[in-house]
Amino acid sequence: MRGEAERLGPQRAAVSTAWASLRAVYMIWRRDLLRFWRDRARVLGSLVQPLLFLILLGTGLSSALRAAGGSTFAGGLDYQHFIYPGIIGMSVLFSSIFSGMSIIWDRDFGFLKEVLVAPIDRSAVAIGKTLGGASQATIGGLILLILSPFFGVHLGALDALELVGLIFCIAFALTAVGVAVASRMQSMMGFQFVLNFLVQPAFFLSGALFPLQGLPAWMTPLTRIDPLSYGVDPIRRVVLSASGLPSPLIDRLSLTLLGQPVPILLDVGIMLAFGAVLLAIAVVNFRHQQ
């Protein structure tokens, strides 16, 4: 034993910082997924809320609308079918925010210190945490995609692939918000505040539960500055067109900016730009922490 230790001796490979940071990002991401996998009960638990919305609220309102109007929600579209993309957005939103909370836990239980004193660039912490959270949120969304046939949504393989890509982009942007907020925050209590005053309004204003056209004048701008609106919109476009809805009807149910329907690429661009800004804020915050 002794001889071995002496032979190895103190040695440190000279590695470039960029490479070391990439490795650190990978390791922090991997740890998040390991914990995610260990905590499968929580993963299932996090699906309860979206499923309640889909099954109970979806079915209830579908029936109510049918009874009231004698027809379906819009042009042969079921309400449940309409909110399905919104509920995917909701699931991603809440699971992204949870990643922010995990940073505060790490701070509380000391593990964050172990990461912050390592000889790595602090940006790796922010990026690794964001990618880890985004991956977890994407897995949640993926499970909802797999369950889609139960809600009358039928997707082709290519549609599903496109959706996974979209969900990851949205998850990345929203997790960056959670990480940026958590990078400044010391206590769980503060996070509760954020949850109630940012996350809930973001959900209700995102168009997850109702179309964002024809709203009162005070409400429309709020829905347009809600980043989640640009996340729900592309998912809905893909889901509805996969279901064979005519595109004028899809445009009528989708997000508009200055009266024009927003193309999917613009949605994604806005989402990613938003995520990049928040990630940059998180990086700066982590770098200045002592």
């Binding site: 914990r35 260990r38 905590d39 000391g110 593990f111 210190k113 172990e114």
Partner: peptide
């Protein structure tokens, strides 16, 4: 450190 800084959801080896 004075206070613990392990990840208690991971194994010792991890």
């Amino acid at each position: 450190f004075q206070d613990p800084s392990l990840d208690d959801q991971l194994t010792a080896r991890e």
